[in-house]
Nucleic acid binder design. Sequence first.
DNA 1: TATGAATGAGCATTCATTCAT
DNA 2: AATGAATGAATGCTCATTCAT
Lengths: 218, 218, 218, 218
Amino acid sequence: MTREERKIDKKESIINSAKTLILENGYQKITVEDITNNINIAKGSFYTYFASKEDLLNGMLEEILKNAENRKEEILSKKYTLEEAILYSVESRFNVDENKIKTMLIILSLTYNFEKLCLRTRKKLISIRDKNIETWLEIIENEFGTEGKEINEEYAILVEEILFSALKKNLYYSEMEEEVGMYTKDIDLVYKRGNTEKIKKEIKFIYRIILNILKGER
Amino acid sequence: MTREERKIDKKESIINSAKTLILENGYQKITVEDITNNINIAKGSFYTYFASKEDLLNGMLEEILKNAENRKEEILSKKYTLEEAILYSVESRFNVDENKIKTMLIILSLTYNFEKLCLRTRKKLISIRDKNIETWLEIIENEFGTEGKEINEEYAILVEEILFSALKKNLYYSEMEEEVGMYTKDIDLVYKRGNTEKIKKEIKFIYRIILNILKGER
Amino acid sequence: MTREERKIDKKESIINSAKTLILENGYQKITVEDITNNINIAKGSFYTYFASKEDLLNGMLEEILKNAENRKEEILSKKYTLEEAILYSVESRFNVDENKIKTMLIILSLTYNFEKLCLRTRKKLISIRDKNIETWLEIIENEFGTEGKEINEEYAILVEEILFSALKKNLYYSEMEEEVGMYTKDIDLVYKRGNTEKIKKEIKFIYRIILNILKGER
Amino acid sequence: MTREERKIDKKESIINSAKTLILENGYQKITVEDITNNINIAKGSFYTYFASKEDLLNGMLEEILKNAENRKEEILSKKYTLEEAILYSVESRFNVDENKIKTMLIILSLTYNFEKLCLRTRKKLISIRDKNIETWLEIIENEFGTEGKEINEEYAILVEEILFSALKKNLYYSEMEEEVGMYTKDIDLVYKRGNTEKIKKEIKFIYRIILNILKGER
DNA sequence: TATGAATGAGCATTCATTCAT
DNA sequence: AATGAATGAATGCTCATTCAT
């Protein structure tokens, strides 16, 4: 392993430590010291790898953003009909694995601390959402053409919003009384929720809603 | 003015001071001292009126919650058809005045600091959103009957989510590069946006979308 | 009831309120507001009757001091032999009623906050202890004559210290794990402890010890 | 000096700073900032060494407790007769050096703020007293056997109480009018008092009293 | 006399970041 | 590169006392 590789490795391990802690306690509560203690390095070492605490978020979101880009390309590379594209998109968002769940919960935690974040981080966070919207935009343009850019974008945003809100409601919200409005910390629970009959129906429901909206008269 | 009236008055003035500062800087940044300095009273005096900083939020949200309740009753008291009810609801949410704008911006700021809030405040915040959802639920039940409670609720949530997201997008988001994802601090700007042709079209668009969703096959 | 009498009455009621609260929570924790709330008068009214919070203690201790003086005179007025005087003194201190218990617990609480008290209060507190020592001194002088003032005083202090410490140990200490070293808040418990066989033995034990000390060679 | 050694050193210096300030002003009045200012470090640095203000007390009392334990072992290791053991114990307690004086004055200050202390600190403080009582208990058991545990313990407590009270009276109380009931801040004065003829007599007096008590009929 | 609003000094603790070793 | 000690600004809350009404 070269020096450079080791550096990347360490960076990765710091990011993972932070992810774990955000999932457990929310971004609001974690400190640089928590992150370093968690992997038995010194507090000061953090700054060898990241310029600041917010820079860490950047690293984290960079990774997440790349995944979002990949997903976008993957969907668009297939020559789906509109129906197929919608169904596939909805399914792939509801079809969670450990990594997707963690990613989503981190984004949700950051969103619940949005005002605290610095510009750069906020931009990254918005980019990730935009990536999903762009995907919808292309799906829409594939079907209806690239005219009416603005109206198409509006539809794209609307659709993403509907899907995102359905995801939060059905998979991520905590049901504990003392965590009203918060997201669950139980990754396994999310996973289980993702594999129920209820979710299969929900997927169809959202699919129909979206299709209905996109195919409705304009 | 009796002592009691003056007390209520002062309480109101502290709330207003806090509102102003939240609108200017976001909840994240304001301190008790900021709030009291702003109206030239001593820091300690704050605690004559509120048990804690979060108690202030409670007072604020209490007021907002009551407004939401009133709006709900108002809408439901009229014997609207489905179409009328939707149109009226959408219009009344887009039809902003200074007070509505401030209220919304405060809610948005708090939502962007959700993890920081204590349980009680989070509950209040959720209640306000729930109040809007309940309104939609009754509109839906008026049209389709009270059977299928769960599915009706799902529609209600969906509709509120669509409307809320449209409101944020069209009225409240800042367009300044350095405020990506943030909401504007310019109340007047929101007011102006609310009175453009674009918004009138948007209202119709949202109206059609909602109607389409609710009237679509189930 | 004359104006003057009403004033004294109110003063008394404030003192009682304070006593109750000290017994419940310790002097450390009670505030002027607690005291006034407890008897439904305004915070400011407190200062109509007492110059300061510490002045209240003074009033309280004044009362207690008078009781101590009375007890002293009572004991000395009887023409007791040494043995009788010791026995009577010890018994009368162990023979608790509600008022004695409260008095003692208040003194103990104040002692546990001694550094916080102002000079005047500290002096009063010391005077009360001195009153007991003086009683012993006279008992001793009745038996052994007034020569050797200093040595007699030393004995008096010693005897009072022994008795006081026995009282604390046998009647007043809390036995709860989380109140190590603290005194109980349960007046009834003290009362019960005072009426056990164990205490009767303890009284004899202390009596013998004191007699032994005083009658031993000098 | 290694980093670790320097850390211990600094910790020690903070403790010393606190000790000095407690001796000068009493525990009641010192703040974390006082402690750090006194040795020219930043307020925040305090928390590098101690988790909280009370944790500092813990560190201090830990040290004192260890000394008490050592003294206990030392006394018991010698094969003293009862008379020798009592004499040695009394003498060693009256035989003060700077360190012993400081320790005692700190304990006395803390006792005068007992209600303010947290459970953990109170427990420590009680442990220190208990250590002395245990020493007496073993001395007593060495002479009279281990039967009658309870009565032996009662004697041990009594003896410690007598000795402790004599120490306070003869060495530690301030004689200044405005410090009634308080302990002196003048360490040198205590030292001087410890080396007077009066104290030698006092030691004999206390010795005789204790011997008398322990050897008296049971 | 009674009220209770107003005052403001006082304080423990947190934590991102720096920097000497 | 790694360490971890040092920094110091930042902040919510308490409470005895005053004073205008």
